[in-house]
């Protein structure tokens, strides 16, 4: 049997999680570089619709891995279902987005199969026949190329922003979809999850925002946040912050970007008065375009910025907001 790359996509709240498209784009790139076939799987109960959505992309086959026991999500059920499925298909590579859900079951699944997962990767390299996966170490201060030293299937999870979701190639014709019903015995699922809920009423999903205006210690006082909010509003974006701002209670915790907050990859990330501590950078460096405004010319944020302004944000933000409004008015 030819080698296969299998992408396991993630759905939540009736939508495919956006990072699934990124992983699929990564799968397409790997398929092109290795010549291996690309397939995808959606795991859950009643997921055929998602499978059809994936089948429109450039892919050889899509599986809907189904069992009523897969809803709601539990690590026991997902691990059991995928183990059964993977043992019957024997893919070479299994790719998944590095989401909280995937982190919850992949180490269990890989261990149950006597395999390992290279987690939270930001890319891959093909050196002759050798495939290595690049991941950040030491909070992003160093990078490592990691290879597998065991038999397939090889599990790899990709960080949010590792690939461009909008670069997924469409297929010439729809790929076939096969439903695979897996058997999960009684007693396998031990956890009893309750309803998912939001703590803060206005909780926002920054991972879905296309434009983010983010503030750091340079904003100095809580009342100054208004300046950043006006800019965000003019741009049609969301406001976010580095950890110290949220720890001070100036913005709610769900607006926090970074290793302990959300990981985002918007089209535009505008960093105001953010120095760029690694804990923050890991949460936003996948952004397509990064604009940094900071008065310290040595601030590490400039290392990853596409556009940089060395200056006082209080001087630059008000005229910037006005210019954005003007540009928008012209249309």
């Amino acid at each position: 049997m030819a080698d296969t790359i299998l992408v396991v996509v993630e759905q939540r709240e009736g939508k495919l999680n956006r990072v699934s498209w990124e992983t699929l784009a990564g799968g397409q790139a790997l398929a092109a570089d290795t010549g291996w076939a690309l397939e995808a799987a959606v795991v859950g109960s009643g997921v055929a619709g998602f499978a059809a959505e994936i089948a429109a992309k450039k892919i050889s086959k899509v599986y809907a891995v189904e069992s009523p026991k897969l809803e709601p999500y539990t690590p026991d059920a997902f691990s059991a279902a995928l183990k059964q499925f993977l043992e019957s298909r024997q893919p070479k590579l299994v790719l998944m987005p590095h989401t909280y859900q995937v982190r919850d079951f992949v180490p269990k699944l890989a261990t149950a199969m006597g395999r390992t997962a290279i987690s939270d990767c930001i890319g891959y390299k093909k050196d002759g026949a050798k495939l290595v996966f690049t991941r950040q170490m030491f909070q992003g201060k160093l990078a490592a190329d990691v290879s597998f030293a065991c038999d397939a299937p090889w599990f790899v999870t990709f960080q949010n922003g590792a690939f461009r979701g909008d670069k997924v190639e469409a297929g010439a014709s729809a790929a076939s979809v096969e439903t695979v019903n897996v058997q999960i015995a009684d007693g396998v699922v031990r956890n009893k999850p309750q309803e998912v809920f939001k703590e803060a009423k206005q909780a926002v999903d920054l991972t879905q925002a296309e434009i983010i205006v983010s503030i750091g210690r340079g904003i100095k006082e809580q009342k100054n946040i208004e300046l950043a909010k006006q800019l965000a509003e003019a741009l049609g974006g969301e406001i976010a912050a580095s950890r110290p701002i949220c720890d001070s209670g100036w913005l709610p915790m769900d607006r926090q970007i970074g290793s302990s907050g959300q990981t985002v990859a918007p089209k535009l990330y505008l960093a105001l008065g953010i120095s760029g501590a690694i804990q923050h950078i890991v949460g936003m460096k996948g952004s397509r375009t990064i604009v940094a405004i900071n008065k310290d010319s040595e601030a590490p944020i400039f290392e990853i910025a596409d556009y940089a302004v060395v200056g006082n944000l209080f001087d630059i933000v008000p005229p910037l907001t006005e210019e954005v409004k003007k540009a928008k008015a012209v249309g």
Partner: peptide, 24 residues
């Protein structure tokens, strides 16, 4: 080990930063 660190390194700066200068 089932996975091997082949190489550890300082990540390369891949971005070209454009600095915008002048009055605000």
């Amino acid at each position: 080990n089932l996975q091997t660190i082949e190489r550890l390194y300082v990540p390369q700066k891949t971005k070209q930063t454009q600095f915008l200068e002048g009055p605000a």
